[in-house]
Design a protein around this nucleic acid. Structure first.
Lengths: 279, 279
DNA sequence: CACGTTCATGAAACCGGTTACATTTCCGTA
DNA sequence: TACGGAAATGTAACCGGTTTCATGAACGTG
């Protein structure tokens, strides 16, 4: 590997001058600077990022930690983060907390010394584990977590309020309303379920299990079709399950939304393209 | 910031023993190891990744460089890479070469000393720029580039062959076949266009401009509708444009595929959900 | 009890950059 | 020509880990 010392030797200057030249600092004579740049090009010098990060204490990188990378919802978040990062000359270190809390903690710890800031969305997050796995000097923004305390910046989708609005809208068209729930241990699922229940205002509830996957939405759709009295509307805890449900209904010839209306949550881009369309 | 020296002092051992304990090496007495681990927990020690990378010369990270992050095609690639990486305990450094060749080069150079290997998909890649911006010791896999030489591992979608197969399939249903092309300077667009032309076997060609976005597919669809003799089929250079085209046709009441058949390229997951469906 | 071997531990070098500080060179002025 | 201050350059410390090598402790054996 070619180091900056090799470049300095080749150019006949000290490593300090080489470093200054390579970084475009002002206090170096043009002739010297050119000799260094020339040497660097000849030797195909590539600075070692870890070394630079260690000495400058900057990585020019922000970490993005998501629960999963599957589906358009997360894809859109990565894309937005990338857009914002690149416009500021920053890199993106992407990670997932797919597995359990321990794995999520390990992933968070490994961010230390790699990133200058962190975008964090994970179902396993709480105050205790944040304090344990994150340097308190690391600027962090939490997304959709139950932690709302002051030491951390955070923003959240209004799962509860949004769910209530959806269910009330469906209720205006009358009839029983079913709910396809997300994972039981997921904070956002819980909030959407809570919104569903609250908006029912005493009307009978009908909750089918789901796990945010299209497959589970499909299964829920089939179960709806087996029922004696079918609901007039379905509120799925996310768009992906709504699509799965829609496919099941379509397969069996149920007309949407005239027979059964289907609504989701998230408004992912493909939802726009689905026919019959989601509410 | 808490360093390993702080931990060593707190535990009353040398940094060497501290390091060995923290990394679970065998040659350390259990009592010592426990003291170190305890001290680390008390001080909330988080190892600085850059320092570790620098001294071990391993980052346990692979870089993924894509032309863009928009759309499901790239989302699927990131997801697959993440799945493979996490199962081996590796991290993912995601980057894009959205802008020009210079920007792509800079992004590639910044990978040095951050990643142990690179997955590289970029329209700006050629031998010269690879040699300039990449350490030749960095294991690299090229995806869909025109570079096929031996020093680099690479794999490519058969754009030319695939396009020919699509067009021949459409031709079996008779009538003129239009093509919505991708960006003119894009290698993959060029190959698909070449496949389209070759499969026409002398039949008259009709090429509409596009840039891989849904919007451009939509515009192409509108242009098709303005024509005196509409083609019987459309081959779009990617699925996203095919969907855009489909929306335009649908809006104007053209039936697909009975009036006009529409085919895309890529087979992105949402293509499955579109009604009327793509060929 | 003396000895040799194994095992745990510590001091210090090292990874490849940046930068504080000391030193030299350059230039303009008296 | 001598001098003073500014600008360029070099030396070496530093970032925070890991690892080599030397040293000391523990242990088994004759």
């Amino acid at each position: 590997m070619v180091t900056i010392r090799d470049v300095a030797r080749e150019a006949g200057v000290s490593v300090a001058s080489a470093s200054r030249s390579l970084n475009g600092l002002a206090n170096v004579r043009p002739a010297t600077r050119d000799r260094v740049l020339d040497a660097a090009r000849r030797l195909r010098f590539l600075p070692h990022s870890a070394a630079r990060i260690l000495s400058t204490r900057r990585s020019d990188t922000i970490g993005v930690m998501l629960p999963d990378l599957h589906g358009e919802f997360f894809s859109e978040i990565i894309r937005g983060a990338d857009l914002a990062a690149r416009s500021r000359g920053l890199h993106l270190l992407v990670s997932t907390s797919h597995g359990d809390a321990a794995e999520a903690g390990a992933a968070m710890r490994s961010m230390s010394g790699r990133v200058d800031g962190l975008l964090l969305m994970s179902p396993y997050v709480d105050e205790e584990m944040l304090a344990e796995n994150l340097a308190e000097t690391l600027p962090t923004v939490l997304i959709n977590t139950r932690v709302s305390g002051r030491p951390y910046a955070s923003f959240c989708v209004d799962n509860h309020g949004g769910a209530m609005a959806v269910v009330r809208h469906l209720a205006a068209h009358g009839g029983p309303i079913a709910h396809i729930a997300g994972p039981a241990n997921n904070f956002e699922s819980q909030e959407r379920l809570r919104g569903y229940r609250e908006a029912l205002e005493g009307a009978e509830e009908l909750v089918l299990p789901g796990d945010f996957t299209e497959e589970s939405g499909y299964r829920a759709g089939l179960r709806l079709l087996e029922m004696n009295e079918r609901p007039r509307a379905v509120f799925a805890a996310n768009d992906t399950m709504a699509i799965g449900c829609l496919l099941a209904l379509e397969e069996k010839g149920v007309r949407v939304p005239s027979d059964i209306a289907v609504a989701g949550f998230d408004d992912i881009p493909i939802a726009r393209l689905i026919r019959p369309s989601l509410t």
